[in-house]
Amino acid sequence: MARNNQDMKCPGQLTAVSICLGAPKANNPQHVLKVRGLKTPVLLANAIHDPATGYDWARSVARQLGRSGVLLTYEGWGHGSYSKGTCMQSTVDKYLISLDVPRRGTSCPAVAPVG
């Protein structure tokens, strides 16, 4: 018998594996992106050491987008790079608020984890 709600939670690894159960079959092979004519490029943000969405994938998407995409690199680890320090947050915020697109090749330094 579980002692409290914390004991009943599913481990993250099990959630990550089971979330796709019953999902429709993925297209195979995947299609090449076709994005043209955007006034402002799409901003991609990805950590070099992201265990869930590999950095090579982000570079591939940026390459496929060409002039329609810019990759902002977090030089650290973890999944979800927006909250990984003021450099990432301020760069993404500038893009979202004023459509200020960072230069191609822009990266933010790794920030030591808290705790």
Rank of each mutant, 00 (worst) to 15 (best):
R104A: 15
D93H: 07
R63N: 06
G105S: 13
L33H: 14
L65S: 07
T91S: 05
T73L: 12
S81R: 01
P109A: 04
Q6A: 09
R63L: 05
G12A: 11
R103C: 06
N4E: 13
P102C: 04
N27P: 14
A62K: 02
S98Y: 03
M88G: 08
Q6H: 05
A23E: 14
Q13L: 01
P109Q: 04
A45F: 10
G37Y: 05
G105P: 10
R59E: 15
H79D: 11
P113M: 08
S107G: 13
P113E: 13
S18M: 00
L96P: 03
T106D: 13
L96H: 03
C10Q: 10
P29N: 10
R67E: 13
I19M: 09
E75T: 02
L33T: 13
A112E: 12
L96D: 02
K84C: 07
A62T: 03
R3P: 07
L44P: 15
R103L: 07
T40H: 10
C20V: 01
A47C: 12
L14S: 10
V61D: 14
G22K: 09
G22C: 12
D7R: 03
A112R: 09
I19Y: 07
C87I: 00
T53D: 06
D100A: 13
G37A: 07
S83L: 06
Y55G: 13
V35H: 04
S98E: 09
L43T: 12
W77S: 15
V70L: 07
S81W: 01
V17M: 04
P109T: 02
T106I: 10
P41H: 06
R3N: 14
L99E: 14
Y95E: 04
C108I: 11
V101H: 04
N28P: 03
S98T: 08
L71A: 13
A62S: 13
A58W: 03
A26D: 15
P113T: 10
L71F: 09
P51L: 03
L71T: 12
C87L: 06
S60Q: 08
S18R: 01
K84S: 15
C108N: 13
V101K: 04
A112Q: 06
P29M: 08
L71Q: 10
P29E: 15
S107C: 12
P11S: 11
Q6D: 15
L33P: 12
A23F: 12
A47T: 06
Y74G: 14
P41M: 06
M8V: 07
S107T: 15
A23R: 09
V17L: 04
C10Y: 04
